[in-house]
């Protein structure tokens, strides 16, 4: 029995609307409702970036919401997965090229799963989240390996902070 394989059964969701039309947002709400019930997969809508694993973004990124988007993404602890819900979150959609739209979430934060459709159907959203789970597991493994290496590198001060993680990895065995 491998305990680590059960980790992916508990994805907690954070939802942010970066300037969309509400269409995908109400479908995300419909996912919580009895007909689709995503709590079956252990998903909770936390509303708190510090405790979330999956960021669901809807809407083309407007100029005012882009800083909030990046801020929220930065507050989430790794491993984290970003899903862009809907055509306009993925590419900008019909809003592409409008003067206050940046167009596409992936210009600002790395997106792992693109969910198509205008608006996305709840089934598509659930499918997207299930795909994200596999990516989440992969990222968890990668993170564990890399942390092991880097911990050796930042022994000075006995503290692990953001600046140190970005440091160049020194050889473990000298």
């Amino acid at each position: 029995m491998n305990l680590a394989s059960y980790r992916k059964k508990s994805p907690w969701i954070l939802h942010y609307n970066a300037g969309g039309c509400n269409g995908c947002d109400i479908e995300i709400l419909a996912c919580l409702a009895p007909k689709y019930d995503i709590e079956r997969f252990g998903m909770i809508n936390t509303g708190n970036p510090k405790q979330s694993d999956i960021l669901l973004v809807t809407g083309p990124v407007t100029k005012r919401s882009r800083e909030r988007l990046v801020e929220i993404y930065a507050q989430m602890p790794e491993p984290k997965v970003v899903i862009s819900c809907g055509a306009c979150a993925s590419t900008g959609g019909v809003f592409r090229g409008m003067y206050n739209c940046e167009g596409g979430v992936d210009q600002f934060i790395p997106v792992d799963v693109y969910v198509c459709g205008c608006g996305t159907r709840p089934e598509q959203i659930i499918d997207g989240v299930v795909q994200a789970l596999a990516i989440l597991e992969k990222k968890t493994k990668e993170l564990e390996e890399s942390v092991k290496l880097k911990r050796e590198a930042v022994k000075e001060g006995h503290q692990l902070n953001r600046r140190h993680i970005a440091d160049e990895i020194k050889p473990v065995l000298s």
Binding site: G20, M98, Y99, C101
Partner: peptide, 14 residues
């Protein structure tokens, strides 16, 4: 006004 996208202008030009 977080969601201002500029639809009116696009409707009159694009």
């Amino acid at each position: 006004y977080y969601v201002h996208r500029g639809i009116e202008q696009a409707c009159c030009s694009k």
